[in-house]
Design a protein around this nucleic acid. Sequence first.
DNA 1: CATGAATGAGTTTTCATTCAT
DNA 2: AATGAATGAAAACTCATTCAT
Lengths: 188, 188, 188, 188
Amino acid sequence: MANKRDDICEAALHLFVEKGIASTTTREIAASASTAEGNIYRYFRGKDHLADQIFEICAGRFHRALQEAAGLSSDPSARFSAIVSAVFEFAEAEPDSFRFVLMAHNTCELNPTVSAETALPRDVFIDVVKAGVASGQFYPLDPLLVTGWVVGMAQKAILFMSAGRIEATGAQVKADTIDGALRLVSRT
Amino acid sequence: MANKRDDICEAALHLFVEKGIASTTTREIAASASTAEGNIYRYFRGKDHLADQIFEICAGRFHRALQEAAGLSSDPSARFSAIVSAVFEFAEAEPDSFRFVLMAHNTCELNPTVSAETALPRDVFIDVVKAGVASGQFYPLDPLLVTGWVVGMAQKAILFMSAGRIEATGAQVKADTIDGALRLVSRT
Amino acid sequence: MANKRDDICEAALHLFVEKGIASTTTREIAASASTAEGNIYRYFRGKDHLADQIFEICAGRFHRALQEAAGLSSDPSARFSAIVSAVFEFAEAEPDSFRFVLMAHNTCELNPTVSAETALPRDVFIDVVKAGVASGQFYPLDPLLVTGWVVGMAQKAILFMSAGRIEATGAQVKADTIDGALRLVSRT
Amino acid sequence: MANKRDDICEAALHLFVEKGIASTTTREIAASASTAEGNIYRYFRGKDHLADQIFEICAGRFHRALQEAAGLSSDPSARFSAIVSAVFEFAEAEPDSFRFVLMAHNTCELNPTVSAETALPRDVFIDVVKAGVASGQFYPLDPLLVTGWVVGMAQKAILFMSAGRIEATGAQVKADTIDGALRLVSRT
DNA sequence: CATGAATGAGTTTTCATTCAT
DNA sequence: AATGAATGAAAACTCATTCAT
């Protein structure tokens, strides 16, 4: 049995990605975490704070996964492929964390001060793309724009895949998306 | 003054994309539309129905904009570029509609029966990509996957742009994104 | 049927003096005012705001009662007696208002900004005492100190009386208190 | 370090007079007493019992202070002056105890059975006034009424003083109040 | 003895929806 | 048709009290 605080986070994370933050009630969270509703308020200042904390946790996990992948090689193209691949692997290993972090991109339900201090997954992308551009292997594109492109591609690919709307296997979609992302940036 | 029903839709659309559907109250909608709260119930069955109706309207507008762009040429690559371009133009002309349609992709706050009957923007993409693949100009990729890629790219590009996080001009970002999208699909 | 807002105020005032502000629940207030709990929040920002508004109302009533009494004569001693008398009359006519205003003296449950703008009953006392001191009929005492003395005397007299702990009639207690108050200030 | 039970009483007493009994939480009390919340329940049956116990302690201290002052002389006027003086001294020496005992007068947050068994400060006043009336030195007033008067005077005088609303020094206010109180009762 | 996490019944507050006017 | 006061069900949040450690 993990500690109660983590139980609450895990239960809330799952409900948040399923139904959205605003539509998830503290009662549901408590029931899903097998704890009393009031307990949420022992560990968090309120539902919003809980959501912010979960964002920090998930963004941290995602960031670490990408950073690890980026560390495995030094060639820009290889690193780029590795982190695109890592996005798919993270989405498969921790689907809720993945969806929650990207949810926060679209809706502004999270406290804007949160992202200011947190290491964001996008930072890894930006570094790799900068290096690729600097080395001349990549087109001279804005690194944040490229990051947006690739994250957007991966997000929709994974969304359609998990919705069962794409016939190809997950491995095929992943491979195609890595190839596609490389075509976006790589001069060769 | 347009009619009351449209006022309500327009006010609600803006609030929905600003704060999310669940976090927008009927009172706010009524105030923003300069009408009485009860009036919402003259035109719509409830808040959910209002959101569904707005989705239909916005998806219809988006779909028409893309279809028009697709109709201007017959060459797959040219049509493809045209509809990617149209995405940017639509996002600039009707930012709320654009954001609302894509919001509905990510959160499942809308009644699932809605999308079944409505002509969706993605259908235009799928057709164009299918034609491109059939003609041999495009790589043999799943058309829905490509649609997801391109829509995801455009969505993030526009998001980062409107957040002021990209230094390049809107025209540059748009041109880069169209080029990038072409590299994704086009064999040449 | 008076309006709902007034019903809520009247019901809340009674409960507040009976049990204290913090120990009175919004549910009790609503039940006592024969209305829905949510209605309280149509008219007031919350329980605290309701208490503040009631204070303004009661302090205003009390202030007007004293001002009227003070206006009936111009001789300092006569005016002084008149307002002490008016305190008793007000306490009998509107016991809840009287107790609520004095409750606010002792507990600091009310928003301190309230009293800054409101005409307070004590102001009438202060004016009359100042005039008496200036005319030489009264001892040269701090007018606020005298006000405190007299209000304190009246409050406890009325408290003990309404608690049935004093055998004398109300009229007798009132007359004795007026005489006593005069002895406090008057040189003759 | 005094014992834990006394720490709790002292901390609770201070919070009770600051914010009222109902608005003080057991968590605040525990934090302020540097002890665990559950510890309150080792020494007291609950928050209400704690408040009752504190009342007994404070009323006892106040009663003893007055009784001591009353014992220093046998002349009614001198004894009367002495206990009025003792009220001020007690209020200065133990402001929280003073305020708490008088708080209990106004709000009825305390268990009514408490006061039945406890020696109350007012009893000292009543005795002295009775003696003064019997000796003919005082007007033939109801002793409880006089007690109410004097306590009320002192309470408001001290309240205004501690709120900084009276310019005179504490000693002056005290002297004036003792003189005033004597004028209330003394025939000479 | 002492702790403080856990509880659950209670509180305040919100809000979609209804309905008399 | 239009209004907005009124509702009540359900939300977020609080807190005295208990109890395993």
